[in-house]
Nucleic acid binder design. Structure first.
Lengths: 224, 224
DNA sequence: TCCCATTTTTAGACCAAACTAAATTTGACC
DNA sequence: GGTCAAATTTAGTTTGGTCTAAAAATGGGA
């Protein structure tokens, strides 16, 4: 039983639901429509269609979640998206900020063989350029214990592991400050007033990040 | 004045017209519809739309040809298609026969920067895996003097330079016979009865090709 | 418990891109 | 030059995906 042939729009909706239901396990019509820049009524239509295909469970007025069949499709899309992002950054020299939009197109290319070859060509990477895990061909993801940078205390030394937003402006800001995935950071001060932090970046300088930026950064223990 | 945003269907039509009008400079409605597996009436509709956008010149009942603006778009699509084919074969290890269909999808990805980076990554190749020239970013193509293998005489030694068809079965046949681009071939016999040829492939064996196969092969003088 | 703002769905319309069937044009042949 | 088959266009329909506007459901606060 193949993932069947889905239209681009159907795929976009499945992926949106997957991402949005990450924490709460259900996604709302409005949240989906906002993410896809469409109207709520269009989303409702699509949900009915996807429900008929057995890809989502839609309880009207109460949100939607993926069936296991839908989850498989969504994870496969995420896999393709993150593999292509990795290719663009590592092989073609793109910066993080630029690749999201292109990968949005590339993730819809349908060829199992292409995905698997690309995966092998890149050396079966476990994480994409933003630190997000890349599902393997069976949909399994490598988990990694990360914690919010915002929770760190003064004096802690950690490594930047994950940026949980593909917002261009955020990525450009990090770039400007000399921060990249794997950067080793020492917390120099935490300001209670606004939640901002002063940091020292090894092989970089002293920087300050606002709480708004910090909320998207996750770290892991610094290497020895 | 950008190539403007075109739908996938519009792009497909432009490329079909480009390819079909290669020899005669005009393409017929039926030929286009056959190539795209649609009906003639659908093509007529599309031609009107493309004509309104100034991309084609359509004289009803008398065929269609690209305007210079349409030609630019078509050449850009050809460029993308052939660069992706090259990537798939040279980097991902695909065989010639498999890449056409995937490249048909990849050629519609819109990102100038992506195309140019891919081109550089591949070392600015002049020819794709089938021997077809790859237009550069300005649409210029590298010409190469090739002649039909079918015109060769007994005893001639030549090199396979171009296969002018992306038909799967043809490419698989060539593969089975041990022929690839660049193969050095000696003509051993030409059979007047059916136009078939007996050939010897250097670093291969003795093979026989039908006139039907030969008609798609083009050669250049053998290297010294 | 009732009310009302917010969210979501329904109803009806539009557009692009395809189709079928019918009408029209062309051009080759007698 | 007239005729007819093939090629092409026109007319009208369908499907998928979106929209706007109106109706319905939900759930928190008085």
């Amino acid at each position: 039983m193949k993932p069947a042939d889905l239209t681009r729009s159907e795929e976009d909706h499945l992926k949106a639901i997957h991402v949005l239901s990450g924490t709460r396990s259900k996604a709302s019509t409005n949240a989906i429509s906002e993410r896809l820049s469409t109207k709520a009524s269009s989303v409702t239509d699509m949900l009915r269609k996807l429900a008929e295909k057995g890809l989502v469970k839609h309880r009207p007025y109460h949100g939607v979640k993926l069936t296991s069949k839908g989850e498989v499709v969504a994870l496969h899309l995420v896999r393709k998206h993150r593999l292509w992002e990795t290719f663009l950054v590592e092989r073609l020299g793109f910066g993080w900020a630029e690749v999201h939009e292109i990968a949005e197109q590339l993730e819809h290319i349908t060829s199992e063989k292409l995905v698997d070859r690309l995966d092998a060509y890149l050396g079966h990477p476990l994480f994409d350029p933003h630190g997000d895990p890349i599902p393997d061909s069976k949909g399994r993801v490598q988990e990694r214990p990360t914690s919010p940078l915002a929770d760190c205390r003064s004096g802690e030394q950690v490594r930047l592991a994950l940026v949980d937003e593909s917002n261009d402006a955020l990525l450009i800001l990090l770039n400007d400050k000399g921060l990249r995935l794997g950067s080793v950071i020492t917390v120099e001060a935490v300001h209670a007033f606004d939640g901002s932090m002063d940091l020292r970046v090894r092989s970089g300088g002293h920087i300050t990040l606002s709480a708004q930026v910090l909320s998207h950064l996750h770290v892991e223990p610094a290497p020895k």
